[in-house]
């Protein structure tokens, strides 16, 4: 199938393809299995040996979940929370990261260590104190509560600092010589150059915000202020052995991100791949 090309096929490429396809199997099989199981009956899901494709195709697992949740509302909340978190992190982290990477200022390293140290604390310790802060702000059970603590990311700042540090200095120095202000240098020159790092951060933040699980459950109470993952988990308790229902829940949680990724994959990948940095 690769012989139609006029180019000769390097044997090394064949090996590479075999390795890549083998790896691909591991990468993709869980998704395949998740989707197949979600369309089985619970009896079929427990057969030994298991069937691969559903023998009696049924979408009853999806109907069960859909009827139990205010789905449109929950999706909307998840989207709002994800978008706000991502946009805010891009702005807040890139500004700070640029300052840490490119400007020498008093206490720079001490402050940067402080920022980094946040990464080193097990995230679970923040759960209760952050709940208290949100409560004191009078924001319990509101949409802003979903994203407020997540707007500030030590990880994002570190990621973008590394990006800025690896960017060439020439353009920036030329602009300084031309008398351009730091503000302009950042927004017009450095920010666009950091695009690959920004795309990596977007991907990370979208995944994090979309999948945030414990925090929404703790801070919000009403189902119409809940996000997708936690909302699905409230249903799981009652279907402990209903594997198709559990898998359908997983599919519903994962698929929107996969679809978004497929639609925007060019922007994502191209954002990383062709940024016009030519040293």
């Amino acid at each position: 199938m690769m012989t139609d090309s006029k180019k000769k096929i390097k044997p090394s490429h064949v090996v590479v393809h075999i390795l890549l396809i083998a790896g691909l199997f591991i990468a993709v099989f869980p998704f395949f299995w998740m989707i197949c199981t979600s369309f089985k009956t619970s009896g079929e899901a427990m057969l030994i040996p298991p069937t691969i494709l559903p023998e009696h195709f049924t979408a009853v697992a999806y109907a069960t979940i859909m009827s139990a949740l205010p789905f449109a509302k929950v999706y909307l909340n998840t989207i709002i929370s994800t978008v706000v978190t991502t946009v805010a992190q891009i702005i807040i982290c890139s500004m700070a990261a640029y300052a840490f990477a490119r400007i020498e200022f008093p206490f720079r390293n001490a402050i940067f260590i402080l920022v980094l140290s946040v990464l080193m604390v097990p995230g679970q310790i923040f759960l209760i104190p952050q709940y208290m802060i949100i409560m004191h702000l009078g924001l319990l059970d509101t949409i802003p509560a979903l994203f407020l603590p997540n707007l500030f990311s030590a990880f994002g700042t570190f990621l973008l600092r590394q990006t800025f540090m690896s960017l060439p200095k020439e353009m920036e120095e030329a602009a300084i010589v031309d008398g351009a202000g730091r503000n302009r240098i950042f927004w017009q020159i450095m920010f666009p150059l950091a695009k690959p790092g920004l795309v990596s951060l977007v991907i990370f933040t979208v995944r994090f915000a979309w999948n945030d699980f414990m925090w929404p459950l703790i801070v919000n109470t009403s189902m119409d202020k809940m996000t997708l993952g936690p909302a699905l988990s409230t249903l799981q308790g009652q279907y402990t052995t209903e594997y198709p229902t559990q898998m359908a829940g997983a599919v519903l949680a994962v698929i929107p991100l996969v679809v978004v990724f497929f639609i925007f994959q060019n922007q994502f990948i191209e954002g990383i791949a062709h940024t016009g940095i030519k040293g």
Binding site: L127, I128, M132, M135, I218, S233, Q236, G237
Partner: peptide, 23 residues
């Protein structure tokens, strides 16, 4: 009615957080 799942201990975590905060 406020429903929080029991499964991963979320019910108690939330109850303890809200009880500490008076809510």
């Amino acid at each position: 009615i406020q429903l929080t799942p029991y499964k991963g201990g979320e019910y108690w975590t939330k109850l303890e957080a809200s009880a500490s905060g008076g809510t």
